[in-house]
Design a protein around this nucleic acid. Structure first.
Lengths: 95, 95
DNA sequence: GTAAAGAAGTTTATTTTATAAACCAAATTA
DNA sequence: TAATTTGGTTTATAAAATAAACTTCTTTAC
């Protein structure tokens, strides 16, 4: 009846991050922060979780002299998102 | 960009309960328990929360000699669900 | 008739999660 | 050179989900 929802994606902020990355293929920390409205601390934590699960990849580099964290969706992350959307349908199709 | 998700509905079990009630208009506690696979304790707590928010109405009656808890969706709950689905789209439409 | 088991929940305790506050290092600006 | 800003991370707190334990009444078995 109701399919289980991946707890890693069933979180407002993490879902926003993944959604953003699927749309953009690459995004920097400050941009994600601005688009999601998250605090830096919360964003840092949630990015770590997504990264630890292999849903996104995180590259820490430098932009001139400033640190720069770039995030990208992985194929694992994309698949997880697609599965999540599919599972959600079991809750949203209420006919 | 990303619309906020009603925290009351953005919960796997509560979403399942509301989804079920929208589809059925009325359901008894044991049936909801069976359909969602939730434990009785968890279900009791989440039903209380939805009831306190006015998303569902709960009628405690008797079926013969046994207690019987019947739940129904309210118009507030239906509206909240529709808003939630609408907000979710901002995360799911990733073109 | 009474003891054990089952049904229908509720209450309470525990674990997990989300979130923000505090912090750090380097760079820029005043 | 002192203060502020940028780009984060770490840690502490608040909130949430969840299950375990408990309650009350009812059957069923002996």
């Amino acid at each position: 009846m109701f399919k289980p929802l991946d707890p890693l994606l069933h979180s407002e902020l993490r879902l926003a991050i993944v959604s953003l990355l699927i749309g953009a293929e690459e995004a920097e920390f400050p941009y994600i922060k601005e688009q999601t409205g998250a605090t830096a601390g919360n964003l840092s934590v949630q990015i770590d979780k997504l990264s630890a699960a292999g849903y996104i990849e995180v590259e820490k580099t430098f932009k001139g002299k400033k640190p720069c964290t770039v995030c990208r969706i992985t194929s694992t992350g994309l698949k997880a998102f697609e599965d999540y959307v599919e599972a959600l349908k079991s809750y949203l199709d209420v006919k």
